[in-house]
Simulated assay, not measured.
Amino acid sequence: MSTRIPVVEQLPHLPTNDVLDALRTAFTELAAGTAVQSPQTVMLLPDGGDVIAYQAVIGDAYGVKVSPYLPQTNCSAVVTAWTLVLSTRTGRPLLLCDAHALTVERTAATSALAVDRLARPDAATLAVIGSGAQARAHLRYVRAVRNFTSVCMYGPELTEADAPDDVAVARSAGEAVTDADVVLLCTSAAEPVIDASALAPGTVVTSISTNAPRAHEIAPEALADLEVYGDYRPTVTAAAGEMALAAEQGLWSPERLRGDLPELLTDSCPLPSGERPVFFRSIGLGIEDLAVARLLERP
Rank of each mutant, 00 (worst) to 15 (best):
61 A>H: 13
180 A>C: 10
208 I>S: 06
218 I>F: 02
129 I>T: 00
137 A>S: 13
84 L>T: 02
227 E>P: 08
226 L>V: 08
254 P>M: 11
245 L>Q: 14
244 A>H: 08
150 S>A: 14
135 A>Y: 00
114 A>F: 00
95 L>Y: 10
17 N>F: 06
81 A>P: 04
51 V>A: 10
145 V>H: 12
31 A>M: 04
230 G>L: 01
81 A>Q: 05
59 G>L: 02
86 L>Q: 12
238 A>M: 15
194 I>T: 10
21 D>Q: 15
41 T>L: 14
148 F>R: 01
29 E>R: 13
161 A>Q: 08
214 R>W: 06
3 T>H: 13
172 S>C: 14
231 D>R: 15
278 V>A: 00
29 E>M: 13
119 A>E: 04
271 L>W: 05
235 T>M: 13
210 T>H: 13
149 T>Y: 02
253 S>N: 14
172 S>F: 12
52 I>S: 11
51 V>Q: 04
23 L>T: 06
84 L>H: 13
86 L>E: 02
198 A>G: 14
137 A>P: 03
163 A>I: 00
138 H>Q: 15
152 C>Y: 09
191 E>R: 15
169 V>L: 09
167 V>A: 04
156 P>N: 05
183 V>D: 04
62 Y>K: 09
247 A>V: 05
167 V>F: 05
54 Y>G: 05
184 L>G: 11
211 N>M: 11
127 A>L: 01
178 T>I: 11
101 A>P: 01
6 P>K: 05
166 D>N: 15
210 T>K: 07
183 V>P: 06
164 P>T: 01
163 A>H: 00
124 A>H: 07
170 A>C: 11
45 L>D: 06
210 T>F: 10
39 P>Q: 11
25 T>Y: 14
125 T>I: 02
168 A>I: 04
141 Y>F: 10
205 V>A: 10
23 L>I: 02
90 T>R: 06
254 P>S: 09
281 R>M: 01
255 E>D: 15
110 T>D: 12
276 R>C: 04
294 R>L: 07
102 L>E: 04
189 A>D: 01
185 L>C: 15
245 L>V: 10
202 G>Y: 10
15 P>M: 09
292 V>K: 02
66 V>R: 09
180 A>S: 06
281 R>T: 05
154 Y>P: 03
50 D>H: 12
132 G>T: 00
237 T>V: 13
45 L>R: 11
288 E>Q: 15
224 A>K: 13
156 P>S: 08
37 Q>W: 10
94 L>S: 07
176 A>F: 08
9 E>A: 11
186 C>S: 15
108 A>W: 02
55 Q>K: 06
280 F>G: 01
138 H>S: 07
102 L>C: 09
9 E>K: 09
156 P>K: 07
77 A>K: 01
120 R>N: 08
162 D>G: 09
149 T>G: 15
178 T>P: 07
37 Q>D: 03
152 C>N: 01
231 D>H: 12
99 A>M: 02
155 G>R: 03
20 L>Q: 07
75 C>K: 15
154 Y>G: 06
235 T>D: 09
218 I>H: 06
240 A>F: 08
228 V>K: 10
242 E>K: 11
269 C>E: 05
8 V>W: 03
49 G>N: 08
40 Q>N: 14
226 L>P: 03
53 A>R: 10
196 A>Q: 07
134 Q>A: 03
173 A>K: 10
100 H>K: 12
118 L>F: 05
197 S>N: 06
176 A>W: 06
167 V>R: 12
109 A>R: 05
126 L>H: 02
245 L>D: 12
